[in-house]
Design a protein around this nucleic acid. Structure first.
Lengths: 226, 226
DNA sequence: CAAAAAATACTTAATATCAGGTAGCAGAAA
DNA sequence: TTTCTGCTACCTGATATTAAGTATTTTTTG
């Protein structure tokens, strides 16, 4: 009887993980990092947002989700929002290559419990999982000063990502590749005036005053394809 | 006696690998992918170019190097060149996140035996190692059409990456973050004229005619930190 | 040390971008 | 139908960038 209770307690203490990442390299890396941690179990992996949602719907409950921000079929912010809507109790840890305050604050606002940069050490990963299970927010070491300052000082400045139109995105992409207004006008069969109007609207929407800054913020927000 | 010969043959057939990457996640991921392959042995790992060079100098011979292109202390192209100078026999496989013809042709020109994108599958990794051991060039599936076309059509168009100075790199980085000449001049305590001179020299070196194009090509060449 | 490379600062002129307007037109939504 | 949004196009003036020079000082390097 005592043994039985012990086993149940042990099973309850086991933390079940779901890894969402389209890179097998990352999934395998996490697997190796966690293989000697007795109380952690990788209950499943998903390579797309779609697969992840299906897993969460059909399979046994998950405690912590390790989620790549750049998935092929959906951006991490949206996926985070979706999961939070249907699974209020699950802890979500975002994984990114970059370390940008803009995207991170956005993620936290959508209900993530923390984020890690992919150059993390094994210890940091385990610590992060422990911490979110405790109900604490975990922010990757490297950036937390920057992010915390943002979250604190401006209360929540995590600028909402502006809505841009199809045409604007198209022009943004061409600017990113180094084209001038003239070249873009030529490629899209538009007047230079029109291209300039779109550029002007983009600058206004993102509240910047030159193209490089525009490209910088849109890159941080994950709006650029490359 | 027969057994002895067999053992020796077995040892000779063992392929020794060195992984050079500053992300433990990647190193661990590769370790997992290869752990069940009997004839592959991870003889060492290095997190910096410096450590890798030391390892190659001091430790037993390596057959294949898996090398990240973006190392903290040196760019992959240069490291590849250095290793090729002192170790003519070793096979070098480059690892990148991106898939840019410019950087890949450059890498091949410097003596790499192939490259892989980090979204590879386990099978692709093993296949790549086998292939370079055979003396064949291995190019990651996703891009080889593009790269092969470049290598073929233009014979070798892989533009050599220009040498840029410390100051130029510094200014390049600030431009990347969206700063204007005025702002950069203010930050670095320089005249705007000076900043403009550096900008002009950068445009000339990379043979482009505006800042966005400059940032685009330097990004492709892996010269930008972000 | 001497030569070479890098960094600094300035001039002039052409071109591009940025900021502020206005305005017509098509298609979707209310 | 009316209204709203997105796309188009043009104008003017201010500011920034680009191109092509020259030239002095500092730093690196052989």
């Amino acid at each position: 009887m005592a043994i039985c209770v012990y086993l149940v307690a042990s099973q309850q203490a086991m933390i079940k993980l779901l890894i969402i990442d389209d890179h097998p390299l990352v999934t395998d890396g996490i697997r190796t990092m966690l293989k000697d941690v007795a109380y952690l179990e990788i209950a499943g992996t998903a390579r797309t947002a779609k697969a992840a949602i299906a897993f969460l719907r059909d399979c046994p409950p998950i405690d912590v989700i390790l989620m790549d921000i750049n998935l092929p079929d959906m951006d991490g912010i949206r996926l985070c929002e979706l999961i939070r809507d249907t699974h209020k109790e699950v802890k979500i840890l975002g994984l990114t290559y970059i370390n940008e305050a803009a995207i991170i604050t956005q993620l936290i606002k959508k209900g993530a419990n923390g984020y890690l940069i992919k150059d993390m050490e094994r210890e940091e990963l385990i610590h992060a999982i422990d911490q979110v299970m405790d109900g604490t927010l975990y922010l990757s070491k490297a950036a937390n000063e920057k992010v915390l300052r943002q979250l604190r000082e401006h209360d929540i400045p995590g600028k909402t990502i502006p809505v841009i139109t199809r045409r604007e995105k198209e022009i943004l992409q061409l600017l990113y590749k180094g084209h001038t207004s003239q070249e873009i006008a030529g490629q899209l069969y538009l007047s230079v005036y029109t291209v300039d109007t779109h550029r002007r609207n983009l600058l206004q929407k993102f509240n910047v005053h030159n193209t490089q800054a525009l490209l910088h913020v849109t890159r941080e927000m994950g709006l650029l394809d490359a």
